[in-house]
Amino acid sequence: MRGGEDYTSCVSQVRSSAALSAAEPSGAVPAPPPSTEAAFDEEAAALVAHLLKAIADPTRLRLLAMIRHASDGAACVQDLADALDIGQPTASHHLKILVDAGLLVRCKRGKHSWYSVQPERDELVRGLVD
């Protein structure tokens, strides 16, 4: 994991620079600015913000939690709407936002659409709603 190492080394770098500045008497040269290396680059931050925007809604968070814990990892609109005590159109609306953001996958089984967490986003969803 290259990213992990970068991150760790950067944390220690920031820590040591902060430690240095703490040791300096006040009024001395200001500490170097915090490193931005560990931060998400602009593109990554845009992606994270984009995903968060889609997730940041109580109903959508509850839908994600339900779907993640559904017996085979997938649930259909009616079951979700019933479980959350919301109307089916409301559930569909929120599910569409999650699908469009790439957080859920929709597939057709028989007459109904089933929703499951996009495998790539499983870790994120687990981290947020568990």
Partner: peptide
């Protein structure tokens, strides 16, 4: 949680958070 995520859902704030967390 939704409120928290909504406040964070902005590219600049995502990066800010990252820097502040790194600074500990």
């Amino acid at each position: 949680l939704a409120g928290q995520l909504k406040n964070l859902a902005d590219p600049v704030r995502v990066r800010l958070l990252s820097i502040i967390v790194a600074a500990r």
